[in-house]
Nucleic acid binder design. Structure first.
Length: 323
DNA sequence: CATCAGGGCCCTG
DNA sequence: CAGGGCCCTGAT
């Protein structure tokens, strides 16, 4: 593993659309624990790549719900250009959906008698995806057919071997490797990290990205159907991985068509207080109520329960998480 | 000790 | 379009 230390620093500010919820946007307690970011209330750290260059980010809350403002500190090694600063700013705005217009969604939330308290509590939260397309793809692949513990194991093994450890601002944050780094790595090398059949996926996906067979930025200009079509072409990408990518990387709020078994159990409890409701029923009910904001609405409710889990013990949830 | 399903997807028939 | 196989692990 490579270690880098960045000491130089440049700052700028971003003014998200209002209302805005900083902690809800920059910390997602439902995600498995990884070494790719750190959060404390009002502060957030992660690395970012612009082209092939790596930077360290520190993002701080400097505003209020109705008057949002965030301060970004960029840590770098030798130099940084104005263009790179611009790109970092653009990328942060995109990844954390800071320009989102959620007026319509908030209106819908207000008419929801049952869950309005939750929507109100997280008013202004965004469905952020802190990673690039390639990076989230890697994460989605290690999520496949695995429990949380195993996912963490696989991710750490990969990071320890091919990732970069970046030290800045008193933190140690990891960065996922560039796809081309795996060029000289054989499928067997990857298998030795106990990632199983996923080795083949990661090898082939990395090759496709290296060869430029898919363009993350270009896909941002496509409509949902076409983004989905392009993503489905990727080896190892099926309905669940596509859903993760459409929602996480491309901020499509209505991606509630595929429900994995573990999600089905949690949704059953959240929406029906029952152990297991048929996935089709859940899907139809949610889509009927929240329409084009189906996945976003569920995201709010899902994150809320995982935030609650930090302070209180929720028996049925502990059972379903299965470390 | 053995067996099995899991925070999916590919491939075959 | 259904179903078997895939890697590894912890649970049973």
């Amino acid at each position: 593993m490579q270690t880098k230390i960045f000491k130089k620093e440049k700052e700028f500010c971003i003014f998200p659309t209002f209302p805005f919820h900083f902690d809800g946007t920059f910390h997602k307690p439902s995600h498995f624990p990884d070494k790719l970011s750190t959060w404390e209330s009002g502060k957030y750290w992660q690395t970012i790549r612009i082209g092939k260059k790596l930077f360290g980010l520190k993002i701080e809350n400097k505003g209020k719900t109705q008057k949002p403002k965030i301060k970004v500190s960029v840590f770098y090694n030798k130099n940084i250009s104005d263009k790179e600063i611009d790109n970092i700013k653009r990328e942060i705005i995109w990844r954390f959906d800071l320009n989102a217009d959620l007026k319509e969604f908030n209106k819908l939330a207000k008419s929801d008698k049952r869950f309005y308290p939750i929507f109100k509590k997280w008013l202004g939260m965004r469905n952020s995806g802190s990673e690039s397309l390639y990076e989230l793809l890697i994460i989605a692949v290690v999520l496949q057919n695995a429990t949380v513990r195993r996912t963490v194991q696989m991710m750490n093994a990969l990071l320890n071997n091919y990732g970069t450890r970046l030290k800045y601002d008193g933190k140690e944050i990891f960065a996922i490797w560039l796809p081309e780094k795996l060029k000289s790595v054989s499928e067997q090398n990857l298998r030795d990290l106990k990632i199983g059949y996923r080795a083949k996926f990661i090898k082939r996906l990395s090759q496709d990205f290296t060869e430029g067979k898919i363009d993350e930025l270009e896909l941002r200009t496509f409509n949902q159907e076409n983004i989905e079509k392009e993503l489905m072409k990727l080896y190892g990408v099926g309905p669940e991985t596509v859903r993760i990518l459409l929602f996480g990387v491309y901020h499509q709020y209505n991606t509630f068509d595929h429900i994995a078994p573990w999600q089905q159990k949690i949704y059953s409890q959240l929406f029906y207080k029952k152990p297991l409701v048929p996935a089709n029923k859940i899907r139809d009910d949610i889509k009927k109520q929240y329409g084009k904001y189906s996945m976003l609405a569920v995201h709010y409710i899902m994150e809320d329960i995982f935030w609650r889990r930090k302070n209180e013990k929720i028996e049925w949830l502990e059972k379903e998480i299965r470390l």
